[in-house]
Simulated assay, not measured.
Amino acid sequence: MHGAAASPHAHYAFAQLGNAAPGRRLCLSRRKPPLMPDDLLPSLPERLFVLASAFTRHNDALAALPLSGPKPTKRLLDHIPFTQLLASNTLDALDALDAVREQGLHRSTGVRDAEMRLIQIASLAVAAADHLIDAMDTISAARAEATGDDAAHGSYQDVLTDAGNQLRTARDLTALAPRACAETAESLAAELHRQGHATATSQHRPALPPAQHAALRAIARGEIYVFDEAGKKYANSREGRAPIATIHALASRNLLWSRQRPDAPGRYRLHLSPAGHRALAAAAVSRPPLAPLSTKAAARPALATPPASRRR
């Protein structure tokens, strides 16, 4: 399972590296996607699963990025294009959704929600890149002005602290991006199918037991990693231990692959393979729609009156 090769589609989201120069601000703008034959592109839900995986890798790399030691600005400079690229690829997915709308997709509530979610994800990635640029600029300016003693003590350490705060903010801004991308992929797969915009993905419906379906969803959101302890394999998720037998079952079906976490040696983050993307998108299509929470109109809540001491 470790080090399994990904298909050519697995790296589609990284094909446009170089759109923004390292260290330069990236503006959030819309542009036409590159023209490619349809058979070379995964479906839109699959592309969003690829994007979720890319954000997971980005977040793991960001968690492992130290500012202490030599060349902290180079580490930041090497990482910034990755963050900017994710913002650009999110906008590409938005353009792809526009292209489907031009083919007759109705702009339903589900489609509008997907559009807004993608704009939010792209905006947060742009903001994260800006914080990384600010951290790099702060360190560069301090180094240019610092004497030998300053660099070893005092003010320079304060500068590193400030830059570290910028780095943590960047991490926070993209922390939930994998989950947001994966959830958007699932809801969009169901909406495309509901409106009759079926793809090859929607015809691919392998039987997924509930435990495997839940594990696939957690993996798509970047929430599961595996590790060895005392000669045995274990899997952890956000909620605690995940059943390793389920992980082995998914691996035997070639639905996932793993990558060592740069922030945690010996721990391997699980990612969906292209077959896993298709299986999860198909499962989203075949799930029954959720029932409304209530058939009665909710009463508007009354606004609380602030205490007199806090009125302005």
Rank of each mutant, 00 (worst) to 15 (best):
I219H: 08
A218Q: 14
A235D: 03
K232P: 02
H204I: 07
L272A: 06
V226D: 09
P265H: 03
S273C: 05
G222T: 07
L216F: 03
G196S: 14
I219G: 08
R259Q: 15
R261D: 10
S237E: 11
S202D: 15
L272P: 12
Q203W: 09
R238F: 04
A211F: 02
H197N: 08
H197C: 09
L255S: 06
P243I: 00
F227K: 03
R261H: 00
N236C: 01
N254H: 14
W257E: 11
F227G: 04
A230P: 05
I224Y: 02
G231P: 04
L208M: 13
H197T: 13
L255W: 10
S237C: 02
T246R: 04
H213D: 15
G240C: 09
P210G: 12
G222K: 02
A207E: 14
A235S: 08
P243H: 07
A214Y: 04
G266V: 02
D263E: 10
A207I: 12
I224W: 00
A211V: 11
G266T: 03
H197E: 14
H248W: 10
G231M: 06
T201W: 02
A235N: 10
I219P: 08
R261C: 01
G222Y: 02
A230I: 03
R261N: 03
R269K: 02
I219V: 14
A220F: 01
E229I: 03
N236A: 10
K232M: 10
R241Y: 07
R238Q: 13
A220E: 11
R267V: 00
H248T: 09
I224G: 08
A215M: 15
A249I: 02
L256F: 11
N236I: 01
F227E: 06
A249K: 03
T201D: 12
P209K: 11
P210T: 14
L272M: 04
D228F: 03
R241T: 15
S258Q: 12
L216G: 11
E229N: 10
K233F: 03
P265V: 00
L216Y: 02
A211H: 12
S258I: 00
A249L: 03
G231H: 02
A249Q: 13
R221T: 05
T201V: 10
L216H: 08
K233R: 15
H197I: 06
I224T: 02
Y268M: 02
L255V: 03
H204V: 01
L208I: 13
A218F: 01
R259W: 09
L272T: 03
S237Y: 00
